[in-house]
């Protein structure tokens, strides 16, 4: 980082915050503050939805994931377009016609207050905890790369978001997201282009693609049916459908985005374009990781991508061991580079025998590299007790900091900060809306005036932001807490989806049946979590099905009881 990078980084962030605060000033009624006066055109709805879903970790981890195990992660998103179609048909017109502020408000008109409060409580619990991690996860990586204190990084991101979300509400969130996503995608494409342009002079785009394919990185589709493994087409289509129905249909962080659409049509179009663009966008981000991988076939990759952690380990008695392993790694690389050049030659000659020979050699060398990297990780873990030696989240950002020209480094860091801010802003805004509308206005202070609720919503936004920052600093002390929060969505999403699907499609089911079915389903899911090792993707499906089936049974029994009593 030099002064140009710092200027670009801070100018970008300050301009976005100032723009969001200025453009959304003067919301004095609750419609303006929580729904942005329903003024968003479809393209802004779409950009907001995409910016909310893609957190900073998406842009840091996804290229690293492709670098390590190829593009198979893409399959996880195959259920998303189907969910967009289903929600466009059902949820969007329902929410718009009932003029709700939150998804949970609809549940009271369809069922009753206790079902609405239960769903709102589940949401506040899972999103309240995960907003802390949305801030913490990128802070950890950024603080390592910039050599900042982790708590200062957390407070920096949290405070920037707090300024415009508290002052401008939903309008500020969606106004800033369209620019944040533009910066994010622009920066990512520039980074990918840089990786490609730094390949040896004569390698074409197609050849880079073929090299990646020969190295097994273009494993886009796996047809085997196994719902406990998230990386096959069926898990993506079935498990992904349930997950994304719940996330986009029943999680206020997303529902709040399309409730701001200016009409049913505009909200629908926003969802439809998300369904059209999401998979190609993930393809591009994953492919950037592949380009970095191909780049490192011809250029020396770091033996361990978290440079700062390796430097710390080099201050200990293990320094000699690590240095020896590193020079061994360098030797292996020279051999690999030669084979990679042979592979390109074989591809050009279109000689299948030579291609296979080169590929087998490279696979053997990669095996050696993997062993050395494993040994280095063991040494670092021994040198720094309790260190997390997973370094795939650092692959992309280390590449950026090492190989991108000054100016672009600042831009790419602005990308990571912007992505963290965009998704945090939606989450804080949704937490505040749900607290204000479903709890405070409904059950605590039902008869206050409009301006009072705007003020209360501002306080709730600030309160959740401070809670998120405090939770992030606790998370820094507890690795297993982070893992728990990362799966907490899976624990509640299935049940919430079951409640909403019963509401949308099963007129037969009434409030008592769905309420008790949801509580039993949640107990079943928690039992599975504590006492079985079932795949998390299955929780969404099981939770949802248990709610629907049980609610049906309870309703049937209740109806029989009423019939008997009336005879």
């Amino acid at each position: 980082m030099n002064s140009i990078d710092w200027v670009i980084l801070f100018t970008t962030l300050i301009l976005i915050v100032a723009y969001g605060t200025w453009k959304s000033r003067g919301s004095r009624n609750i419609d303006g503050y929580l729904l942005g006066n329903k003024s968003l055109p479809w393209w802004n709805v779409c950009l907001s939805i995409m910016a909310t879903q893609a957190s900073a970790i998406t842009f840091l981890s996804t290229p690293g994931q492709a670098y390590e195990d190829g593009m198979r992660f893409l399959q996880f998103y195959f259920g998303l377009p189907l969910a967009m179609v289903i929600l466009s048909i059902t949820a969007v017109p329902l929410y718009h016609r009932l003029k709700v502020y939150t998804a949970y408000e609809y549940l009271e008109s369809r069922f009753d207050l206790k079902t609405r409060s239960l769903a709102a409580f589940f949401f506040l619990m899972l999103r309240g905890l995960s907003v802390g991690i949305t801030i913490y996860a990128p802070s950890l990586i950024l603080s390592t790369m910039l050599d900042w204190n982790i708590n200062i990084t957390t407070i920096f991101i949290g405070s920037l978001v707090m300024i415009y979300t508290v002052s401008g509400g939903t309008k500020a969130v969606s106004m800033t997201q369209k620019y944040q996503l533009t910066i994010i995608m622009g920066g990512m494409i520039i980074a990918g282009w840089t990786a490609f342009s730094k390949l040896p002079d004569n390698i074409t785009f197609t050849e880079a693609f073929q090299v990646a394919g020969e190295m097994g990185k273009l494993n886009l589709i796996n047809l085997s049916f196994d719902l406990s493994d998230r990386y096959n087409i069926w898990s993506g289509l079935i498990g992904g459908l349930f997950l994304f129905l719940s996330y986009f249909g029943a999680d206020q962080s997303q529902v709040g985005r399309y409730l701001g659409g200016s009409s049913i049509g505009q909200s629908r179009l926003g969802l439809i374009f998300n369904g059209l663009l999401k998979i190609p966008m993930q393809f591009v981000i994953l492919y950037i990781g592949i380009l970095v991988f191909v780049f490192y076939q011809f250029n020396q990759a770091p033996v361990f991508h978290n440079q700062s952690m390796k430097d710390k380990a080099m201050q200990t008695e293990y320094a000699g061991d690590i240095a020896a392993l590193e020079s061994e790694y360098d030797k292996v690389f020279i051999e690999k580079k030669k084979e990679a050049e042979n592979l390109v030659g074989a591809i050009r000659a279109d000689n299948p025998t030579l291609i296979q020979q080169s590929r087998e050699s490279i696979e053997r060398i990669q095996g050696e590299e993997k062993v050395i990297r494993g040994q280095v990780k063991d040494k670092i873990a021994a040198a720094i007790p309790g260190a997390n030696t997973l370094d795939k989240d650092y692959v992309f950002i280390t590449f950026v900091m090492t190989y991108l020209p000054h100016g672009l480094i600042g831009l790419l860091l602005a990308v990571v900060f912007s992505a963290a801010m965009a998704s945090t802003a939606s989450e804080l805004n949704a937490l505040a809306s749900t607290t204000a509308v479903d709890i405070y206005k409904r059950s605590i202070a039902p008869n206050a005036n409009d301006y009072h609720y705007v003020k209360a919503s501002k306080w709730f936004t600030a309160g959740w932001a401070i809670f998120g920052m405090m939770f992030a600093s606790i998370a820094n002390q507890a690795e297993n807490l982070i893992q728990f929060v990362n799966i907490i969505g899976s624990l509640f999403y299935g049940t919430i989806l079951g409640i909403f699907l019963s509401a949308f499609y099963l007129k037969y089911i009434k409030s008592n049946a769905v309420f008790f079915a949801a509580i039993i389903a949640e107990a079943v899911i928690l039992y599975c979590y504590f006492f079985t090792d079932m795949a998390f993707l299955l929780y969404n499906i099981i939770g949802c099905l248990v709610v629907v089936v049980l609610a049906y049974v309870i309703q049937f029994i209740e109806n029989q009881g009423i019939k008997k009593a009336s005879q």
Binding site: V85, G213, L218, L276
Partner: peptide
């Protein structure tokens, strides 16, 4: 107060993408 063609478009684009990705997986 034609949506269905938009819904079909989403499904067809998804299907085309899956076919392209399947082709890439098997031929590279």
């Amino acid at each position: 107060e034609r949506w269905s063609s938009w819904y079909w478009l989403v499904m067809i684009v998804l299907a085309i993408q899956i076919i392209i990705y399947l082709f890439i997986t098997t031929s590279f």
